[in-house]
Nucleic acid binder design. Structure first.
Length: 267
DNA sequence: ATGGTTGTGTGACAA
């Protein structure tokens, strides 16, 4: 039974419940990590997930904004909701589960977008994003003895040149500025993480997970960015079998502006 | 340089 995990910024789980259900039926991941659920905890559509065999659901929601959910066929324990930057935003959720011979800590993250102006001195949202990234430096791939780790989510940063449609044109655009891309590189290196998407699909291949709603024809223009990520502890690299970026989902009925990313492992 | 779209919840704000 190979282990499969998916991540998807859904931009309202209630509005897009039909396409989430279709996705689960078709791709059948063991775990689905959602971001931007935009759903208060008491209104979360638990029953829809239980009906599809996802009996184990952890949520960290708030009214209107943000919100993450981890939906699993397998039982998990030790649910943690970390309050990054201590401002009460629902942006993190982690669980621990068994897969094969492994115990795995799964972090589900929604990093602040950071606003439009890439200057922390005049834009508090960008300051918040950089502070969040700074706090992420404490996240270790080997944080618990005998526990592997997977970190997924909408990290709102496209770290590599091949992660954006134009490196030069986006250097001053929030999500691809040097302070962000270098910050993310530092988080990966210091934390002992491996960028599993790029392990499977190395540069210089272009790789995007998000296309703006504002483009007239997102598919033809193809001005995408890789904002969604799957990282793993080093021991998982040898067992990674496949990464799939579901580009077609951007063309589904009433789509999210992000598409699902799926990782499949040998265990 | 500007403006372009979507979602929440009915306002202004976030992305």
């Amino acid at each position: 039974m190979p282990f499969t995990i998916a991540t998807w910024n859904i931009n309202s789980v209630r509005l897009r419940l039909p396409i989430v259900e279709d996705f689960l039926r078709r791709f059948d991941p063991d775990v689905l990590c959602l971001q931007e659920t935009k759903c208060p905890n008491d209104l979360f559509p638990h029953a829809a997930f239980h009906a599809l065999g996802y009996d184990h659901v952890a949520i960290h929601g708030q009214k209107g904004y943000h919100g993450v959910a981890t939906i699993s066929k397998r039982p998990f324990d030790d649910v943690v909701r970390q309050d990054f930057c201590a401002i009460g935003d629902a942006r993190h959720l982690s669980v621990r589960l068994d897969a094969g011979e492994r115990r795995i800590r799964i972090h589900n993250l929604y990093v602040p977008a950071g606003g439009d102006e890439p200057d922390a001195a005049i834009n508090p949202k960008f300051r918040h994003k950089l502070d969040f990234l700074e706090e992420m430096r404490a996240m270790r791939a080997s944080g618990e003895p005998d526990v592997s780790a997977i970190l997924v989510g909408d990290l709102n940063i496209a770290p590599l040149e091949a992660d954006v449609w134009s490196h030069k044109q986006l250097l001053k655009i929030v999500s691809h500025t040097p302070v962000e891309t270098e910050g993310m590189t530092r988080v990966i290196a210091e934390g002992g993480w491996s960028d599993l998407m790029r392990h499977h699909i190395p540069e210089p291949a272009k790789l995007y997970t998000w296309w703006s709603y504002r483009a007239k024809d997102w598919d033809a223009a193809d001005k995408g960015r890789r904002l969604d990520h799957i990282w793993g502890s080093g021991d998982l690299v040898a067992d990674l079998r496949d990464i799939e970026v579901l580009r077609e989902a951007r063309g589904w009925e009433r789509p999210s502006d992000h598409v699902p990313v799926i990782a499949r492992f040998a265990f």
